[in-house]
Amino acid sequence: MFALAIDFTQPFEDAFSKLLSFIPNLLGGLVILVVGYFVAKVLGKLVGKLLGRVGFDQWMERAGVSGVLQRSGTGLTASAMLGKVVFWFVFLISFTMFASALGVPEISNFMSDMLGYIPRIFAAIVIICLAALFANFLAAIMRGATGNETASNGTAGYPADPQPPATHGASQGWSNGTPSNGNWPGGQ
């Protein structure tokens, strides 16, 4: 009879050698990720402070963007928000480099595609800032042309609690200002 020689240790040796060859890639990738994190943190803080010093927050306050940020509940100023955007941009670049160092092309391709959207995000932020400036400019023109300062509080001249005139319903025999049969004048 033929003796079958099966080597049970060969798959384990192959797996162990692949693991040992992967460890340098993993360590190099982790170094890239950690260094990238700290560089991103420093650049994000630097951009935030630099924009704060040149008066970017005051510009955004005049544009109305700061009010939007306050209502969003983030507690960040406009300069701090852009600092966060810079942090995430740099960190995503370092994460892409980390994925490339691991030798996983699917992750690095996906991250490269995500990085392609970041210029669109910056363009959207610029468009929002310009739109807010233009809206404030138009509101100032409207206030100046009409002499109406109530447009500045966002109500556009409407009273805070509109009430139907008391004579409207009373003149048509309605007790509470609305018709009892649900038929409004004008078919509404």
Rank of each mutant, 00 (worst) to 15 (best):
S108G: 06
L30R: 02
R143I: 05
T167A: 14
D14W: 02
P105F: 01
I93S: 04
W184S: 14
W59F: 07
R120E: 14
V86Y: 04
A131H: 11
T9F: 08
G154S: 14
G173S: 07
N176H: 08
F12T: 06
A166P: 11
W59D: 04
S112W: 08
F91K: 03
F16H: 13
R62Y: 09
W88I: 07
G103R: 01
V34H: 07
S175K: 02
N136L: 01
T167N: 08
V31P: 03
L43H: 14
I93E: 06
M60E: 12
I128Y: 01
M60Y: 04
L133R: 07
G177D: 05
G48L: 06
Q163W: 04
R62W: 03
H168V: 12
I141R: 13
G48N: 07
G187C: 09
P11D: 13
V86H: 09
A78C: 03
N109C: 06
V68Q: 07
G173H: 10
N25K: 02
A132S: 14
S94H: 01
S100G: 00
A40C: 06
L4E: 12
F2Q: 14
V54P: 00
S152T: 10
G186M: 02
P164E: 04
G36E: 06
G28A: 00
G73F: 02
A166K: 12
T167H: 11
G116M: 11
L26S: 14
Q58P: 14
P159T: 11
S100V: 00
G55C: 04
P179I: 02
V42H: 12
S17G: 06
S100P: 05
Y117Q: 14
L51W: 06
A170E: 10
I6F: 09
L51N: 09
P11M: 12
T178F: 15
Q70P: 15
S79W: 01
T146C: 14
T74F: 05
A170Q: 06
W59S: 03
I141G: 10
N153T: 11
G75N: 12
I127E: 05
